[in-house]
Simulated scan of single mutants.
Amino acid sequence: MQTKPRYILVLALATFITSLTLGHSQKDDFVVVIDAGHGGRDPGAISNGYKEKEIALDVVLQLGLELETYNDIKVIYTRKTDKFIELWKRADIANKADADLFISIHCNSVTNSKPYGTETWVLGEKNTGRNFEIAKRENEVIFLEENYEENYEGFNPSSPESTIAIGIEQEVYVEQSIELARKIENNFVNKAKRKSRGLKQHSLLVIRNTYMPSVLVELGFISNKREGAYLNSKKGQLTMARSLKEAVISYKKELDQNVGSNISGFDLNNNDEPDETKYSFVDVIFKVQIAASSKNLATKSYNFNGLTDISKDKDGKLYKYYYGSTSDYDKVKSLLQEAKTKGYTSSFVVAYKNGQRVDVSEVLKSVTN
């Protein structure tokens, strides 16, 4: 396994805030890596005659077919057959592909046959109760790998303390991962008509070293006979795959609106764009979000590559850092470009109305209404 030298990790922490990239990269294709959990000698959960590794693969292959119909989306699979893939290799595939998203597909199972419903997990440090038991189960796959002690530096899936330190590289993408997870769960409810058990966080090895927004999706409980039968059916797999596809497309569309040149139907590079006054709002404040981190930094220019007018707020365990503040959308576009020239190449515009964060796309739609 190729691992980062420790001195690079230390340097990355020391300069953490100045090297963050938060959006999708400026590539021609939007790259999605989809990962069918388990495989080969690792069957995952087995219950009621259903195997997690088989259902996960079937859904991944269907999801890939759905996404591949879009010309600007490139799909990469960690596996397309029943083969064993080490956890670290799955993240490595995504990193080498410079992926924009990493989605790992799994199925749930418990000894009690009653629980049912979907869950979508992002990286976190909540090490108590059922959250830890789920993470322990998923992480114990490492024991099937050769040289796992070397590859995971003595990581112990049975130790809550061992999970706290992982995920430094993923931390910056937590907010975006949560946004994707919300879209996935909402689609499971609204489109697939499934019960959602919500968005959850824990330290999961399969997404700990990915350098992009990443989620682990539990499609449902194969230990529940009714849900297991649904997930094992072609209809169920197609419905779940299409719900996932719609979540990815919605997520990508929002990113395109923030970092692309065409927003809400207006070509911002076109000389015939609407008058400037149509982009000024009395009750809306625009800012450029340049970073999100657990590090509480002083809003001084030396911490932000020379940028001034920095503000921050706390959202849970994360501090979000912003550049500029204006009610003029054209001005915030200029601020966005300035932030990018300072190294924040994937920063993006956010909007606030009456102190509450709102979708930029919804604000801009009001121009045409």
Score class of each variant (00 low, 15 high):
Val10Lys: 11
Leu11Trp: 12
Thr18Met: 13
Gln26Leu: 12
Asp28Ala: 12
Val33Leu: 05
Ala36Glu: 03
Asp42Trp: 10
Asn48Ile: 06
Ile55Tyr: 07
Ala56Gln: 04
Ala56Arg: 02
Glu66Ala: 15
Asp82Val: 05
Lys83Tyr: 07
Glu86Cys: 07
Leu87Met: 09
Ala97Arg: 05
Ala99Arg: 04
Leu101His: 09
Ile103Tyr: 06
Ile103Ala: 06
Ser104Glu: 04
Asn108His: 07
Ser109Val: 07
Ser113Gly: 00
Lys126Glu: 14
Asn127Pro: 00
Ile134His: 05
Lys136Trp: 03
Glu140Ala: 12
Asn151Ile: 14
Tyr152Ile: 02
Glu153Val: 10
Ser158Asn: 15
Ile168Pro: 00
Glu169Ala: 14
Val174Phe: 15
Ala181Thr: 04
Ala181Met: 05
Arg182His: 12
Phe188Arg: 05
Asn190Ile: 03
Lys200Leu: 10
Ile207Phe: 03
Ser223Leu: 09
Leu231Asp: 06
Ser250Gln: 14
Glu254Gln: 09
Glu254Ile: 04
Gly260Thr: 12
Asn270Pro: 00
Phe281Glu: 02
Lys300Leu: 11
Lys312Gln: 13
Lys317Cys: 01
Tyr321Arg: 06
Val332Arg: 03
Val332Met: 06
Gln337Thr: 05
Lys340Asp: 03
Tyr344Trp: 02
Ser346Tyr: 08
Asn354Phe: 10
Val360Tyr: 00
